[in-house]
Amino acid sequence: MNVEFIEALEQIQKDKGISKEILIDALEAALISSYKRNFGSAQNVRVEINRDTGEVHVYSQKKVVENLEDELLELSLDEAKGIDRNYEVDDIVEREVTPRNFGRIAAQTAKQVVVQRIREAERGVVYEEYINRESDIITGSVARLAKGIVYINLGKTEAILGPTEQMPGEEYKHGDRIKSYIVEVKKTPKGPQVLVSRTHPGLIKRLFELEVPEIHDGIVEVKSISREAGSRTKIAVESKDPNVDPVGSCVGPKGARVQAIVDELRGEKIDIIKYSEDPSVFIASSLSPAKVVSTEVNIDNKTAKVVVPDYQLSLAIGKEGQNARLAAKLTGWKIDIKSESQVKSDN
């Protein structure tokens, strides 16, 4: 290796942000292994690369001892004194043992080490970028499908959309642009692994932040979300400004804002509920689109008895109990729904 090699390392430092010293240190460590492998040496050695000229030198290292037991690793005190009378027991004596053709081996090793370190650095940059985006929304295109897993091209890396994170009935075709929610970013030997979801409630929140400026700006706050992906979502919102209608803000002019989210979710129904500090009001609203006659709440055990008109009972409960289930999850209350006729017969 030569001056050009050092200049190349300096250019890599400039372009890739990888310290020249880190590269040289890694190369010196790799060259120790290369030396031992190629020259069958079991002795301790140190490799030094001149930071200015790029020249490589190999030095054997032996420990000074009084009683010599291993000639490969040790040097007697008498022999050490013959080299330099200042040597004492436990000192390390170095001698240059650079092989004549070691430059060729060094060049090959250097290429491997530099390429590996660049790859590791690039993976590190990608990891740092996406680890800071956990719980965020990301847009990518479907790259491929394999064994039920959808791989999404994000540009610098691929995201993994596992079978359990896919919306029921949703089809994914090569090239489709989709938004997903970053659940977790892992470090693996092959680089960062970005795990995403289309079913996570967090996706709903992030989509509303994208479509509704009032939510993005903090004027309207998302209080809670309950979701059965691919079917229905309920989202409770509250305005911090009395002049701003939280539900109207989320619906948008002619329903454009919520419709954009529904389209992204392939037709998933979304109920936007106005949050209230009053549990009875909030619970009644959470059963939308059903109308509620009365609500009786028990604060101690967080249960509520809700009465609805007879013709609204099936709507309040929902298909297979979905509406009632989502309302309970949204509010955090156990809700018992009865029709007016049922209440009369009970009494």
Score class of each variant (00 low, 15 high):
1 M>N: 06
2 N>K: 10
4 E>Y: 01
4 E>K: 03
12 I>H: 03
17 G>K: 13
18 I>A: 06
19 S>V: 02
19 S>P: 02
22 I>F: 14
27 L>Y: 08
28 E>Q: 06
29 A>D: 13
30 A>F: 03
31 L>Q: 01
32 I>F: 04
32 I>K: 07
33 S>N: 13
44 N>K: 11
53 T>G: 08
56 V>W: 00
61 Q>D: 11
62 K>D: 09
64 V>F: 02
67 N>H: 09
70 D>I: 01
71 E>T: 11
75 L>G: 02
76 S>I: 04
78 D>F: 08
79 E>D: 15
86 N>E: 15
87 Y>L: 15
92 I>Q: 04
99 P>W: 13
102 F>R: 01
103 G>L: 06
103 G>E: 11
105 I>D: 13
109 T>C: 05
110 A>G: 09
114 V>F: 00
116 Q>Y: 01
117 R>V: 07
118 I>G: 15
122 E>C: 12
130 Y>P: 00
134 E>A: 09
138 I>H: 07
144 R>G: 09
145 L>A: 11
158 E>T: 02
161 L>T: 11
163 P>H: 14
170 E>D: 15
173 K>G: 15
174 H>F: 09
175 G>L: 07
180 S>R: 07
182 I>G: 05
187 K>S: 15
198 R>G: 06
204 I>W: 00
204 I>L: 07
204 I>H: 00
205 K>L: 04
206 R>A: 14
209 E>Q: 12
211 E>G: 12
213 P>Y: 10
214 E>H: 04
215 I>E: 03
215 I>G: 01
216 H>L: 06
218 G>T: 06
219 I>E: 05
222 V>M: 08
225 I>E: 02
228 E>V: 01
231 S>G: 03
232 R>H: 10
235 I>P: 00
239 S>I: 01
243 N>W: 01
248 G>D: 04
249 S>D: 12
250 C>Y: 02
254 K>W: 04
255 G>E: 10
255 G>A: 09
258 V>L: 08
262 V>L: 10
266 R>P: 03
266 R>N: 14
267 G>V: 07
270 I>E: 03
276 S>M: 05
276 S>V: 07
278 D>C: 06
287 L>H: 08
289 P>N: 12
292 V>A: 10
292 V>N: 05
294 S>L: 05
295 T>P: 03
296 E>M: 08
300 D>S: 14
302 K>L: 12
303 T>Q: 14
304 A>N: 09
304 A>C: 11
306 V>E: 01
316 A>M: 06
334 K>A: 09
339 S>G: 10
